[in-house]
């Protein structure tokens, strides 16, 4: 379902959106929306080298017809994601990969809030396309944030996946986090090599859904 924007200024986008719809209808590849923060956006590297693009290429090479939409935004928190979701949902979505929450964790935001926001995002996606397949990327905060916070934080993602019947990537940065050679100088963002491993982590969960 497409929500036709109200108000004159919104009409400007109709052409674009109808165009997208038309394209979607003619070639009918599956649209995978990667919705996340700097990890998705490929902070510090070429967006073509970020894991969403790598996943797309990997699937295409296996003959799968997919269209990857990178809707990552650096510094995005779960609250930011919630207010931006309507905009992103103007396009059709078949598979929705939710990769948010890391910035909440690094800023020590209350965990209940993060969980609530992520749930709200999932609800909106479902409302738009009840048949959408949802993938949740599990996140962790570095141990220095304290065991209490870390433990409660990393529980959020499996819990959400269970409740929403979604696929779960147990930990997006598995085999990448904390390894100097796979991260950029800031120690947080994976480098090109790191993104390849992240893409593998994602593919493992995503491929069976197609």
């Amino acid at each position: 379902m497409i929500v036709v924007p109200e108000g004159s200024m919104k009409r400007a986008f109709c052409v674009t959106i109808i165009g997208l719809l038309f394209m979607g209808a003619s070639t009918a590849p599956q649209v995978i929306v990667f919705y996340g923060d700097s990890l998705t956006a490929g902070y510090g590297i070429d967006p073509d080298a970020a894991f969403p693009a790598l996943v797309g290429k990997a699937l295409e090479s296996k003959g799968k017809e997919v269209k990857v939409v990178n809707a990552g935004l650096s510094g995005e928190t779960s609250a930011g994601g919630l207010s931006r979701i309507d905009w992103v949902l103007r396009q059709p979505v078949d598979i929705f990969v939710l990769e948010l929450g890391a910035n909440d964790g690094l800023r020590g935001l209350p965990i209940e809030q993060t969980e609530k926001n992520l749930q709200a995002i999932i609800d909106k996606v479902r409302a738009k396309n009840p048949r959408v397949k949802i993938v949740i990327a599990g996140m962790m905060v570095p141990p220095n944030m304290g065991p209490d916070y870390s433990a409660r934080f990393q529980k959020v993602f499996p819990e959400l996946a269970r409740r929403n019947d979604a696929a779960l990537i147990p930990f997006l940065l598995q085999d990448v986090a904390g390894i100097e050679s796979l991260n950029q100088a800031d120690g947080i963002h994976p480098n090109v090599e790191g993104h390849r491993i992240v893409a593998r982590n994602v593919l493992k969960v995503l491929e069976p859904l197609l």
């Binding site: 570095p142 141990p143 220095n144 944030m145 986090a177």
Partner: peptide, 10 residues
Amino acid sequence: TGLIQFGSRV
């Protein structure tokens, strides 16, 4: 404190 472990950013 257990805050310094593998993966900690110190």
